[in-house]
Write a protein that binds this DNA or RNA. Structure first.
Lengths: 343, 343
DNA sequence: GTTGGCACTCAAAGGTGACGAGTGCTATTT
DNA sequence: AAATAGCACTCGTCACCTTTGAGTGCCAAC
């Protein structure tokens, strides 16, 4: 889908896209001629615009309104027109400060990052925690909470913690639990969570384990503990999207909010981005989010020292301030990667 | 603010409130006379309605519309008119099932509860986790994650887990961390988190501790670990509120969503409910949530075996189906209490 | 190739009047 | 004296119309 355009057409298209991003109103030929101090009359611009419309880059909502960029136009815009803004010193400061300040483990950092993204972009921030499964196992522990109830705590080397309540058939003494823990910690040292899980399953079939009651118990408990729940995902700044005029109507918004309550959808979407490096941009239907709502998504992945991969980004209207959001997402991903690699 | 009303006035008021709850439209005199098969003409109803308006229980948006209940009317309605529906067998089944199914510790249960509340009421469900602080301390543990980085894990007897990343000045060997943990676990056995915190602070001034380097380190770490973050709060079903006609306008909704992003506000609100037993109902301005938005809140507290208290409830429009939501909240609170007391 | 001019289109905004739901008052019935 | 029927009145809603103006497309002129 290569688009060939003369320099002038490009210039005009850029002007239209940026105008529309700024105002959310269809932009007319005279507005382009005036605002951009091109040495062109509106009539000429009109001719060019007619061309662009024919090429599927613009549409008019009706005959006597201005024109609106299509998805294709946004695509072209971000691919070859947009002049990326620098991330300002102040923004950098904010990103770094927020990354660091949060005290409460991995979740805390990521949640704070999501909030920062939302603040700086004025759209929604979204962060998907690195999948636990490829993290390296660090520690497992069983704590007796009460009669026949124990809490399993699983810690990865990145500080991600997962805990799970387990009901047991018999009551276990703390010493037993300690021995189980030691046994498992020994067994799973250095493995990733996925590997650990496999190891547990093979061990369970092992003859020796089957005769040692305590060991078989330990294996069964740990099998529950390493079964990973759905990934953590942080979406912040949902209210901000209401500022966008195109979402001021209730039906539209409902669609979006419902999409987001199904966090699974986003997860699926984002998992696609995991493979590629650098900033990824999905415009409108490319997001395969709710059918019609004009949503765009700018994401980048971040990595940790143990090579697990997470995702962060910004969700906003197609009519989004790409020139400033793209660098922010990029920079934030770098910072988070650096922070998480300092282990 | 006692309101004295004749039986007939009460009946009519009830009819109006319920009609309005059902339709969200101002209700007129003839509608009342007809729908309720009272042996009264619309003219008579009009007289009564004029009375009720004088008493501040009704308002008319304009001369020739029907009338709308005021906050005061809702208050009176829930205090002395409403006929509570039974919780249906099916609803009970759902509540119980959802409470139990969730595997992932306390947070999981509470989140699921919030979702269930939202589903059954068709409004928003909200759950505030029992404040950790009055929970009994169970276990503390330090895990070395990497160079000069340790993870502190604090577990309460109810299975609530809090973890915190700590950067240390020197690198600690696992054995040291183990000894610290043992020391602290011994020291804080049987105390509540609050008491444990105090204990730590007094110990830190203790001479003996000041000379034992390891001990003083342990105390400093644990002090960070027991410092409680903001309470956990689960709000589910935010999209549902968009179904309510009175919130179909964007400005209204924005107000609400912003209020909820500031979870602190809700927390403050809910903490008031903690003291009282049974179902609490806050109507409109009583919620002291966003000034104007017509929001009501139905809450009940739940308790755990260790006597910590959490809050759950439903947030909806003032025009809410009180007769069915109140029993649902009540029943859910009882179930959650029972579930959490089974330790 | 660019431009000015002009006829044309169409949504948005404003105005008008019929309609009807609902009220308040009063005279009348029970 | 309480309940009702009747009636004039109010006022928002709806359907319909006109006006306005931004914007287009096309053509003839530069």
């Amino acid at each position: 889908m290569e688009v060939e355009l003369s320099a002038r057409s490009r210039q005009i298209l850029e002007a239209i896209v940026e105008d529309y991003i700024a105002t959310a109103e269809p932009v007319g030929s005279s507005a382009v001629a005036r605002r951009h101090a091109l040495t062109l009359s509106s009539a000429t611009v009109r001719n060019v615009m007619a061309n662009l419309e024919e090429m599927g880059l613009l549409t008019s909502p009706h005959t006597s309104a201005g024109r609106i960029p299509t998805e294709k136009a946004y695509r072209f815009y971000v691919d070859s027109l947009v002049a990326l803004r620098r991330v300002s010193r102040e923004e950098k400061r904010q990103i770094i400060r927020h990354c660091r300040q949060s005290g409460a483990g991995l979740s805390g950092i990521l949640k704070e990052t999501s909030r920062t993204l939302s603040q700086l972009s004025s759209y929604m921030g979204v962060v998907v925690a690195p999948s636990f499964t490829s993290d390296v196992f660090r520690h497992i522990e069983f704590i007796r909470l009460g009669h026949r109830k124990i809490l399993a705590i699983l810690v990865s080397s990145k500080g991600a913690v997962q805990n799970r309540l387990i009901e047991t058939e018999v009551d276990h003494a703390p010493e037993e639990l300690l021995r189980m823990g030691n046994y498992l910690n020994e067994m799973m040292r250095g493995l990733t969570i996925t590997q650990a899980r496999e190891r547990i399953l093979t061990e369970m079939k092992n003859e020796k384990a089957q005769y040692d009651h305590l060991m078989s118990q330990a294996l069964r408990f740990s099998e529950q503990a390493v079964t990973v729940e759905s990934d953590e995902i942080f979406i912040e700044g949902q209210a901000r999207i209401l500022d966008q005029p195109e979402f001021s109507d209730a039906a539209r918004m409902k669609e979006i909010y419902e999409a987001f309550e199904q966090k699974g959808i986003i997860l699926q979407l984002l998992s696609r981005c995991m493979t590629a490096d650098g900033v990824q941009i999905y415009i409108g239907s490319e997001t395969s989010l709710s059918r019609s709502a004009d949503i765009s998504l700018i994401t980048a992945r971040f990595v940790t020292s143990s090579n697990t991969v997470g995702m962060l980004g910004v969700i906003g209207p197609t009519r989004m301030g790409y020139s400033s959001v793209i660098p922010i997402v990029d920079y934030t991903a770098r910072m988070v990667s650096r922070l998480l690699s300092e282990t």
